[in-house]
Design a protein around this nucleic acid. Structure first.
Length: 565
RNA sequence: CGGGGUGUAGCGCAGGGGUAGCGCGCCUGUUUUGGGAACAGGAGGUCGUAGGUUCAAAUCCUAUCACCCCGACCA
């Protein structure tokens, strides 16, 4: 492609709206164009890179025996009602109506439609297993799109779905997919953490997220400094050390006027929050629960939801708390017998906690949870932090931020049961198909690639992703010799089947051309200049290292061909 | 949905009741040509939108829309 014929244009300055590297570089380099919040056009360069990503993904999917299909964007709302996911997705679901007022959904994902395919194709265990995948646009009306391609409302995703007749088969496919995913990220030169993830409301057992670690990320991962344990903070577990003072002291009531928070309590008594118990009340769809946790920790509501096995969970209002005869600000499980109480394991780390006395303006000292609290329902429900230690090897945990660029999931039989995708097993029994699903956000992956492969001059594309194999630069296209030599190399490269971006702009100075080439990040540059023409030489530059070397003009094409292959 | 911010030329920004500005980019010409060239000339705007106040509104008031950031949310 000649730059003189290209629609691409680079920007000299950052767009004011870009906060993270991938957003500003992709914008400046002319890869993407924003139409609305979380809605982007992919310009020619971006599309070429995206196609490269897709090529890598298709290769790995095909290698594990998955077959490509394509399912519709637009789907009947009835289908989504039947799995109750109209409600589950809530406002994130884009909906529309057809001319007869029938409800339609812009699909945010494709479990329902792919299950309907399986239903129509599978009768017997002999028809299983198989895996289908597609690369298709998804629509999600995100509450807050952000950070360029990181969180958008319309995005391409590779989603694969496996169908098995037993657990072994399902697990085997899951493991093979995990390997395929690792291969994909390796080829894209994006480092990843593989984190255990919460399986969420829709059944299923194992789930793993592929997280690209970066400060710009919106997910938090807890990872062990010494063993391989890595998990999303939503799911991560940890153990917590006992505090030093384990003496057995008598309960004492102390006056704490106007104290209603842990912070105020600690200020008044000059103690660390570690030595306090925090008590929070929650409402579920049909229950009222008191939750106790050490004052320096916070409740992980996902863990709590799993423990309570409930759908809705929210913090109770002060009014609801008072109705139960409790005093907001001075609550504790001490002496409570008529309300469900769940405590985090951290309440066992001391025997001298300070906790609410269930009376206004007063607290207890020296609370030993095991001794003083009648309801001994103790679970691990805190948000795991770097304060915790690894539950596997007891070493230090670290907290890392990152972007989720892939997610694999053992779905189980929720969709097959709900939609009636059944088969007859070896004994003639009807069984629901066991499903798995496996997703990668394509645009988000491109953003992650740029995040992990750039310097202050611009993008540094991995060979496998670069929109072009080589960037040929005619430093002065008004110089006849330079023009002639570069044109001849360009034609030559094309005839060798090499995809080349040719900076043949006659009106740009050398500096502009160098800067643009570095911004675009094509891994290999060939620079033809009047200066080097005199000695019949071309210059080859590696974008990543900015190293250059000379090569005779006549050998340039063959050297490029060598370097690329 | 709560909090904060921004809308003025393609991009980045200034201006703050009385002729619409700057830098970069863009067009023409001349000179230049290895790290974002110089000179000369030029094009480009209903100041987000709608109402209102005023002799006069980009500027003041009201409403509204859009976008960005933080949070909430996010199988």
């Amino acid at each position: 492609m000649r730059l003189t014929q290209s629609a691409s244009k680079t920007l000299r300055t950052n767009a004011s709206e870009s906060e993270i590297a991938s957003h500003s570089l992709l914008t400046r380099a002319g890869f993407i164009h924003q139409l609305g919040a979380g809605i982007y056009s992919y310009l020619p360069m971006a599309l070429k890179s995206l196609k490269n990503i897709e090529r890598i993904i298709r290769f790995e999917m095909d290698a594990v025996g998955a077959q490509e299909i394509l399912m519709p964007h637009i789907q009947p709302m009835e289908l989504w009602d039947s799995t109750n996911r109209t409600t589950a997705f809530g406002q994130n679901l884009f909906t529309l109506k057809d001319r007869r007022s029938r409800g339609l959904v812009l699909a945010p994902t494709h479990e329902e439609s792919v299950t309907m395919i399986a239903k129509s194709v599978v009768q017997s265990y002999k028809d299983l297993p198989f895996t289908l995948y597609q690369i298709q646009t998804k629509f999600r009306d995100e509450a807050r799109p952000r950070a360029g391609l990181i969180r958008v409302r319309e995005f391409a995703m590779k989603d694969a779905y496996s169908f098995s007749h037993n657990e072994e088969s399902s697990n085997e496919i899951y493991d093979r997919m995990a390997v395929a995913y690792k291969n994909i990220y390796n080829k894209c030169e994006v480092p990843i953490l593989i984190a255990e993830a919460d399986s969420g409301a829709i059944g299923g057992k194992d789930s793993h997220e592929f997280i690209y670690p970066t400060e710009a990320g919106e997910d938090t991962v807890i990872t062990c400094s010494s063993c391989s344990y890595t998990a999303n903070v939503e799911k991560a577990t940890g153990i917590i050390d006992k505090l030093d003072d384990q003496s057995n002291l008598q309960i004492k009531e102390i006056q704490t006027p106007n104290v209603t928070s842990i912070q105020e309590l600690c200020n008044l008594l000059a103690v660390s929050p570690k030595y306090t118990l925090k008590t929070i009340c929650y409402k579920t769809e049909d229950d009222f629960v008191m939750v106790a946790i050490r004052g320096d920790l916070n409740v992980n509501e996902i863990k709590l939801k799993n423990v309570l096995n409930c759908k809705d969970l929210r913090i109770a209002t002060a009014e609801e708390v008072s109705q139960k005869g409790l005093i907001p600000g001075s609550m504790s499980p001490v002496g409570i017998t008529d309300i469900s109480v769940i405590a985090d394991i951290s309440v066992m780390t001391s025997k001298v906690f300070i906790a609410g006395a269930n009376k206004p303006n007063s607290h207890f000292k020296n609370i030993d949870y095991a001794r003083d609290c009648p309801m001994q329902n103790i679970k691990e429900i805190s948000i795991t932090t770097a304060e915790h230690k690894c539950s596997k090897c007891e070493n230090k945990l670290e907290s890392v931020k990152g972007i989720e660029i892939g997610h694999i999931f053992k779905l189980g039989t929720f969709f097959s049961e709900t939609l009636g995708a059944l088969f007859l097993d070896e004994t003639g029994q009807q069984q629901p198909i066991i499903m798995g699903c496996y997703g990668i956000g394509i645009g988000r992956l491109l953003a992650a690639i740029v995040e992990s492969n750039h310097d202050d001059r611009g993008i540094i594309f991995p060979k496998s992703i670069s929109p072009y194999a080589v960037n040929l630069i005619s430093l002065n296209h008004n110089d006849d010799a330079c023009k002639q030599a570069s044109e001849s190399i360009y034609e030559n490269l094309l005839s060798q089947g090499i995809d080349c971006l040719f900076d043949d702009r006659p009106d740009k100075s050398a500096g502009v051309k160098f800067q643009d080439a570095e911004l675009l990040g094509i891994p290999l540059q060939v620079i033809i200049s009047p200066r080097n023409i005199k000695t019949n030489q071309a210059e080859i530059k590696i974008r990543k290292t900015l190293e250059t070397h000379m090569t005779p003009l006549v050998d340039t094409v063959s050297e490029i061909v060598n370097q690329i292959n």
